[in-house]
Design a protein around this nucleic acid. Sequence first.
DNA 1: AAATTATTTAATCAAATGATTAATTATTTT
DNA 2: AAAATAATTAATCATTTGATTAAATAATTT
Lengths: 203, 203
Amino acid sequence: MAKKVKAELDLTTEQKIKEAASRVFTKKGYGNARTRDIAEEAGINLALLNYYFRSKEKLFDIIMAERIEKLFGVLAPLLYDEGTTLEEKLQNITDNYITMLTEHPDLPIFVLSEIRNNPDKLADRLQARKHMTQSVFVRQLMEKRKDISPFHFLMNLLGMALFPFIAKPVLQPIIGSENNYNAMMEQRRVLIPKWIKMMLEEV
Amino acid sequence: MAKKVKAELDLTTEQKIKEAASRVFTKKGYGNARTRDIAEEAGINLALLNYYFRSKEKLFDIIMAERIEKLFGVLAPLLYDEGTTLEEKLQNITDNYITMLTEHPDLPIFVLSEIRNNPDKLADRLQARKHMTQSVFVRQLMEKRKDISPFHFLMNLLGMALFPFIAKPVLQPIIGSENNYNAMMEQRRVLIPKWIKMMLEEV
DNA sequence: AAATTATTTAATCAAATGATTAATTATTTT
DNA sequence: AAAATAATTAATCATTTGATTAAATAATTT
């Protein structure tokens, strides 16, 4: 294997293809993405894509694994932290989730629509079962509020954080500039943990 | 135009194609749907699809308009009802939204991912601007809680109602049977309006 | 430097796919 | 019933698209 000696800043061909594939797949989805789009985006010959990754599907599988890791990788450790209180976790999870979504706003719709196309293949990868049944966070939720399933609060937290991002193409033009929208997300960083705390109090 | 005289229960060919197209497009998305899939699903010859609708894209546009109407048609009138209080609206909106989503669980991801593929063409259709700026509901939210943008509460309501449905492929296997999942949604019908009410109270 | 191996390209293939055509059957109008 | 119009079908076309091939170039090893 003859690894090219490239200038530090240059990416290897393999990396260029992966990054182009990540952009194109995320933006258009598997079915709407053309291998020619990816090759052009990467600035390489189409045949190279197959030379390095054998097929569109194999390339996609690699990209998808990385994107899912991006979507949940930051979150998972927070859920299992024994050293933080429930309140701290609410703040940390909200914070990290909104940060990640701000950096990768098109990730949720991409992952969700690919799961729709291939539930069996992808749904497992998220390890949602483990997080739901074994995480410290869920345990703490149950201790705090015994009469309501912790799933509800988890859904609320994720739903409130996620919604503005998946609805962004619809809402952004109404709310105004990109900056305006981001300002609203900054408010939600503070508000969402407060709201969840309110829900957790007995009535 | 010679409309066929069919038995009452039979659908016209045009209707059969539309219903098949609705199923196939919603399940797979525009890019992954094949006109042959639609023809087979409708039990008709492929050429008939073009005979009635000229092209895949024109057929899609018709289906999409109907699906968007389904997604927001029930909601819009509730937002403008002068005869209900804010509390009643919270209950009505949640109730109707969850009912609609239960009947059409794959609708949100379909609409959102098509908007991603074609924001300019689709985002306007939802008339979100009008609902956000002129609805009685938003006005009532502003009167109740002057220090927080009504957008936040709208996002929270929709996010909390929507999330369980878009995450269903991931969460359903964990929570258990379809019945279990539906039971949880029934709980949320009652809980979500309560939670929003709590958020609306001054701290 | 020669030989070997790795990388890259242009050209091409084969299958999939949206769309059309020309002929056939069914329905409606005259 | 004959003529005209509408609906339906099988066959086919033209493009698109994922993938391959054979040849050329670049890098590495001997």
